[in-house]
């Protein structure tokens, strides 16, 4: 396993006490795996991504460990993290379109970046940079341009190039396709795949609220709800046989091309996620869930019910336990 996150909790300090935005999240990524992390706004998906690279002063890790390539990642220690950023873990920030400073040319920005990371052989890296620019269909002269001279899609591609220049093990891509047109979305999505295939990045976490983009590029999908993981499985499983009621509702609310309102009436999910300041005990989706029953007042465990398919839902684990129990009885008989 190249990346493993165990029981990670991240809280924001606030006047009304700590707000636990990420609450006991565990998952592992294989080499070459692109994991999609999806959820509503406020579900803690960006907090999780940011925690893996930079905890800003408002945030603190309240528990858990992160391991990348067998080495523990000192996420609480900003100073110790510094040499690991860009080389081990790298981030394409949300709003990457406005992440480039308008006062520096792209080329200058990149050399500054390399200098501040004490990269010894900058010339080789710059040659590699030009090769990669050519690969994604940008001409070398973008290095002589300011960021505002590039289109949105080009800027997004430049930020991804910069983030992956030192071949990080883990790339966190936060909403990289959200602000783009469909054609640029596609180009950026395929660029991520290409970079993974060429080994520029070992594995990646793609954070988005758009499940249909994940269906295109991710190998597996994790669904987050109110700070906790609700379901995690291979992309095909999540899309075709989701088990958690929240995932099911989320997928049912997506209109597909070719679906008209007079043929199918889609439904949203009533209500809104609970506040994380004083989250309710038990399953946090309970109030919006059509299948909620008494047991849901206890917190459901996030357990693996099939190989590679984990769900946090009493309904699912109960019915699965029943099936497994029957199978066990048959064997003993």
């Amino acid at each position: 396993m190249s990346v493993s996150v165990e029981n990670l909790s991240v809280a924001y300090r606030s006047h009304r006490g700590d707000v636990t935005a990420v609450d006991g999240v565990s998952f592992a990524l294989a080499d070459g795996e692109i994991m999609g992390l999806a959820g509503e706004s406020g579900s803690g998906k960006s907090t999780l991504g940011n925690a893996l690279i930079y905890l800003d002063p408002r945030m603190k890790a309240t528990g858990g460990t992160v391991t990348v390539d067998g080495r523990a990642l000192p996420i609480s220690d900003t100073r110790a993290m510094r040499p690991l950023r860009m080389t081990e873990v790298s981030l394409v920030p949300q709003y990457a379109m406005s992440a480039l400073t308008p006062t520096r040319k792209i080329g200058k920005l990149i050399t500054d970046l390399l200098r501040s990371h004490h990269v010894p052989d900058r010339q080789t890296v710059m040659t590699e940079l030009k090769r990669r620019l050519e690969l994604i269909g940008l001409r070398e002269d973008v290095l002589d341009k300011y960021s505002f001279e590039l289109s949105g899609g080009m800027r997004q591609r430049v930020t991804i190039i910069m983030s992956t220049l030192l071949n990080p093990s883990l790339l966190i891509a936060d909403e990289v396709t959200s602000a783009l047109d469909v054609s640029s979305q596609r180009a950026v999505g395929e660029m991520l795949l290409e970079f993974r295939d060429r080994g520029y990045i070992k594995s990646a976490i793609t954070i988005t609220h758009d499940l249909s983009i994940l269906a295109q590029i991710a190998d597996s999908i994790a669904i987050m709800y109110a700070g906790r993981l609700a379901e995690r499985a291979a992309t095909e499983t999540i899309v075709n046989e989701p088990l958690h009621p929240y995932t099911q509702a989320l997928i049912a609310s997506l209109p597909e091309v070719g679906v008209r309102h007079d043929q199918v009436t889609l439904t949203g999910i009533p209500g809104r996620p609970p506040s994380l300041v004083n989250p309710p005990a038990g399953c946090r989706f309970r109030d919006r869930c059509p299948f909620a029953f008494d047991k849901c007042t206890q917190t459901p465990p996030f357990e693996e019910i099939k190989p590679g398919h984990s769900v946090a839902c009493w309904k699912v684990s109960d019915s699965h336990a029943a099936v497994a129990g029957r199978a066990g009885q048959e064997q003993t008989v």
Binding site: S183, R186, D210, A215, Q216, V239, N240, G258, R260
Partner: peptide, 28 residues
């Protein structure tokens, strides 16, 4: 009419846009 445009797109640009739409059950 919407069903005619999406069901039978004629302009290359429309086709290009449609081919880039991410869909849940269909890969690019």
């Amino acid at each position: 009419a919407t069903d005619k445009i999406f069901g039978n797109p004629q302009h290359d640009y429309t086709r290009m846009l449609l081919s880039a739409v991410p869909e849940l059950h269909k890969k690019w």
